[in-house]
């Protein structure tokens, strides 16, 4: 399973990576913002994306909107904070499949990843 992590914080990406590797996913690519992610999706062809909302250059919502223009189905999990909670519906309308609010525990993240993948597989 190829997974793309889009987050400006290296620490967050490491945390996500660690959670993913415990779930058995090791094929992971990282991008530090929306622009970087857009340049990587073509070649990497991820099967799941974890996208942070707040990023410099291009935020997560803009990235999702752009990405969804070409790819309608690859599942996206949005990483948000409490401040964006009211806008989560906006993200969902843009094509986000699931979301996780910071702060989250590793357990919650892996639960979200699992339920998202299960839903896609169903």
């Amino acid at each position: 399973m190829k997974i793309l992590l889009v987050d400006d914080s290296k620490t967050m990406r490491n945390i996500q990576k660690s959670v993913l590797s415990q779930l058995g996913y090791t094929e992971i690519e990282e991008a530090c913002d929306g622009v970087d992610a857009l340049s990587k999706v073509g070649a990497f062809e991820p099967e799941l994306l974890l996208v942070d909302w707040n990023m410099p250059n291009m935020d997560g919502l803009t990235f999702v909107k752009k990405y969804r223009q070409s790819d309608k189905s690859t599942p996206i999990i949005m990483v948000t904070t409490e401040t964006e909670r009211a806008r989560v519906v906006e993200a969902i309308k843009a094509g986000v499949n699931n979301y996780v609010v910071k702060p989250f525990t590793p357990d919650l993240l892996s639960q979200r990843i699992n339920e998202t993948l299960e839903k896609v597989a169903a």
């Binding site: 620490t11 967050m12 904070t81 910071k102 702060p103 989250f104 525990t105 590793p106």
Partner: peptide
């Protein structure tokens, strides 16, 4: 948002 991130790190 920064605190939320720190919190996530701590939980991790």
């Amino acid at each position: 948002p920064t605190q939320a991130e720190t919190m996530t790190e701590l939980q991790f």
